[in-house]
Design a protein around this nucleic acid. Sequence first.
DNA 1: ACAGTTTGTCCTCTCCGTGGAAAAAGATTA
DNA 2: TAATCTTTTTCCACGGAGAGGACAAACTGT
Lengths: 394, 394
Amino acid sequence: MKRVALRPENAHQARLLHLLQDGPRSRAELGDVVELSRSKLAVEVGRLTELGLIEEAGLAASRGGRRAAVVRLSQRLRFAAIDIGATSVDVAVTGGDLEILAHAAEPCDVRDGPDAVLSVALEALGKLRSRGIATELHGVGVGVPGPVSFRDGFPVAPPIMPGWDRYPVRDVLAQQLGCPALIDNDVNIMALGEMHAGVAKTVDDFLLVKIGTGIGCGIVVDGEIYRGVSGCAGDIGHIRVNDDGPACSCGNTGCLEAYFGGAALARQAEEAARSGASGHLAERLAQAGRLTAEDVGTAAAAGDAVAIAIIRDGGRRVGQVLAGLVSFFNPGLVVIAGGLAGLGHVLLAEIRSVVYRRSLPLATGNLPITLAELGDTCGVVGAAKLISSHVFSH
Amino acid sequence: MKRVALRPENAHQARLLHLLQDGPRSRAELGDVVELSRSKLAVEVGRLTELGLIEEAGLAASRGGRRAAVVRLSQRLRFAAIDIGATSVDVAVTGGDLEILAHAAEPCDVRDGPDAVLSVALEALGKLRSRGIATELHGVGVGVPGPVSFRDGFPVAPPIMPGWDRYPVRDVLAQQLGCPALIDNDVNIMALGEMHAGVAKTVDDFLLVKIGTGIGCGIVVDGEIYRGVSGCAGDIGHIRVNDDGPACSCGNTGCLEAYFGGAALARQAEEAARSGASGHLAERLAQAGRLTAEDVGTAAAAGDAVAIAIIRDGGRRVGQVLAGLVSFFNPGLVVIAGGLAGLGHVLLAEIRSVVYRRSLPLATGNLPITLAELGDTCGVVGAAKLISSHVFSH
DNA sequence: ACAGTTTGTCCTCTCCGTGGAAAAAGATTA
DNA sequence: TAATCTTTTTCCACGGAGAGGACAAACTGT
């Protein structure tokens, strides 16, 4: 069996691969889209076939003449995606078009360190592959919940990932799996996911705000992830909301995360439960011994007024920060993502209300603020997109 | 006299022109920098000479062999730059290398509307040109103090420019002067200026914050101005600093401009003068009948404690907003520019202190915050850069 | 069966760039 | 002053790549 070559040879081939990622096409259709002569196109398609990156896929229906020969990405192409969260690892295997072929989520604490977490991920990936789905991998994309030096391929001073600082995740995985690897921040990964298959398909400049254990923001400029000079752009969790706000783990006071991070929500919920303000939460506290952000979500979904008020208050804080960022960045779309997606509508309404009121009218004039479309799979799709873009480029 | 053609014919020529903008070079030197064969390079240089865009400039000193023939941008190339401020218009004529050949500043109220202001600018420009400096113009760049739709070439809903909304500045000037024209926001223009000849020469991602009548921010991503989807990116004057702050002209409360804009400074100064807190300011008020932001500046420069306190307080507010933006954008440099440049050190110290304390350590680790290097000429150099980049591109 | 359409392949012609060779112009040394 | 070495520039021939036309293949509809 011929080994699939790693890379296209030139920019034309890269362009063709990206086009074919959106589905099979006939040579004639490709010729309509790409500004290449028929002969040149035939040559490049031939080369890509020779490289094993694309293959024939039968004949299309006739449009009144000779039936077109359809080409598609090689069905043997396989990308792996690893989305490392605070308390779990999502692993997936996709084909060349990033369609998910297999998916698994393993509970796993990121604080156990890179060795433990990566071996859980590799084992899960091994199980998926052993189903005969992927004999060979052509790339692996990784997302981690903290700042990353994209250039160097490792996390840098990640607050919730002790032991990961400068651990060469990219190179270790590339060596272990014998294929190209890339690592990026989890919000950037999600932004890529929504750009490839979600709400951001047609937008070039947008923000994706993820609200979870921490609060982060993916920045897309001209269709590309913007990472900043140190790779920590979008780290908005510690932007000041108020001087006289609660103390934050970062040492300052009044940070956004001190109002609406996972820990802050849990604290507010426990207070509400103890003071007797919320029956739902008190009951849950009695059951579980302690409360988490998720409990606030379920209570709110069940209609608990206090939980809804907590979320609404948090949404207002996020909205305040976001209003400033919208004025500054003037995006074409804002996507809200993260664990609280289920009760998104309360949150969304509050965020919208603040942003539309406090941002520059010119910036909000035609600014949709929506929830993420992709659910659990957003991260892994984005991770696959990250590495596929790299492999499919020259 | 042969007319200088408008544009290079291909990307190679554009590249050569941009290289020559930094000074004359011999063909051999160009060959070392550009990845072109000697023959190809000779052809392109020949074409550019034929087009009248470049010309021979004698022989370089020998380096042990035949003396190299130096080429430079045509000495007949002329760009015009118009920097429209709130109360004055700066006009300049530059050569192809953006060196300023003539410069004039005319007092002029932007509120008089586009017809009045543009005729002042055109008249001033005419005077400069009549000195025999510029028989022919190859482009004109314009900066205005308000949001601009760069694509359409006109201001959009500019708050301090009544009558300018959607007035087709670009097309009117292009027609009047018979050359290509471009219009952009004044902060973007200044960012271009500092990038071409100031502190930002070696930085690809940075912010330029201008503090003047309004407060605005130029955003540079990967060496290019980022304008946002509506062209109003960087409009940070109305970002919320505090909920219970002073009322702002925009209708909200606690905006940055309500603390530290031109009007806010004047108001605080008059209060200080009336209450007798500041002798300097009271004296000035008695003289002039009213106070402006500039008076605060001169008082502070003279050592007036109240004025310094006002500036320090404003610097803190700017720092608070900037701290958030630094965490979000993770720039490689922050440049502070604007009318208060003279007393920059107090302001700068305050801004630095807040940003370094409140932003993400990873983002501030290697982040210089400096004053703009270019003074009065920053705007016009940037405007010239804007149009020259356009004319020199394909 | 034949005309019209669409698709794919082949072939030739032209253009462009590479790289070598030679020429030009000057420095250095005998 | 002549000869040799360096550096720069021009000239030229060869090779490769792409554009576009011609033709063949495959299919529809009359």
